[in-house]
């Protein structure tokens, strides 16, 4: 009898462990929605050139003389996000890294009420006061979105920038619902 009770107690203990091991829980509010911005951009650079003094040049070996020393500097970007005309995010983005030479990134998660909203996003360079060469100004990546989006319950809408610099929206379609097929966060197919 005692042995049977012992087995029963042990089984109940392990059953409790197993139950707590896969306890279905909602850790987030499923009725909210979110507007996400996430992309990486090389941005654009301007060069600061200085002309070396003649005396300084003459002090160097001939093969090391460089009359025009130029240092490329990444241009900061301004990011504006308006939802239904309300300014929700305003930031100036500087290139990260110890020398400020890493690509720019944008990462923001803005809670929104589910439904349709007018969304305007502007991501553009903050040019220095010095004149910028026209080709640099023309090729600088810029993201300018002004559109109306539907934010479903319990879903996030993601605005990103593809390799060509074009804006791209990702919304969870019915097909990308959990368990029904490949999801945006699923690993790359072989």
């Amino acid at each position: 009898m005692k042995r049977a009770v012992g087995w029963l107690v042990a089984a109940v203990g392990l059953w409790a462990v197993a139950s707590l091991s896969t306890y279905r829980t909602a850790v987030d509010d499923a009725s909210r929605s979110e507007f996400r911005l996430s992309w990486r951009s090389d941005g654009t650079s301007v060069e600061d050139c200085t002309e070396a003094a003649r005396a300084e040049q003459e002090g160097l070996a001939e093969h090391m003389r460089n009359p025009n020393a130029c240092v490329a500097r990444r241009v900061p970007y301004a990011l504006w996000v308006r939802i239904d005309g309300e300014l929700r995010l305003r930031d100036t983005l500087h290139a990260p890294g110890a020398r400020g030479d890493r690509p720019l990134y944008v990462f923001a998660e803005l809670p929104v009420t589910p439904g349709r909203h007018r969304v305007a996003v502007d991501f553009s360079p903050v040019w220095p006061e010095a004149p910028v060469p026209p080709d640099v100004a023309a090729t600088a990546p810029v993201l300018d979105v002004d559109t109306t989006l539907t934010f479903p319950d319990g879903r996030a809408v993601l605005l990103t920038m593809d390799e060509t610099g074009a804006p791209r929206l990702r919304t969870p379609s019915e097909e990308s619902d959990p368990g029904a097929g490949p999801a945006p966060g699923a690993p790359a197919a072989r």
Binding site: V17, Y23, A26, D28, S31, A156, V157, D177, P178, A186
Partner: peptide, 23 residues
């Protein structure tokens, strides 16, 4: 009590119920 496969991760789904391991 076999462990069953929970829905696949989907970063764009919020508030998805999780099969949480409480330990």
């Amino acid at each position: 009590m076999p462990v069953t496969a929970a829905p696949q991760a989907n970063p764009l789904v919020l508030g998805q119920p999780l099969d949480l391991d409480w330990f």
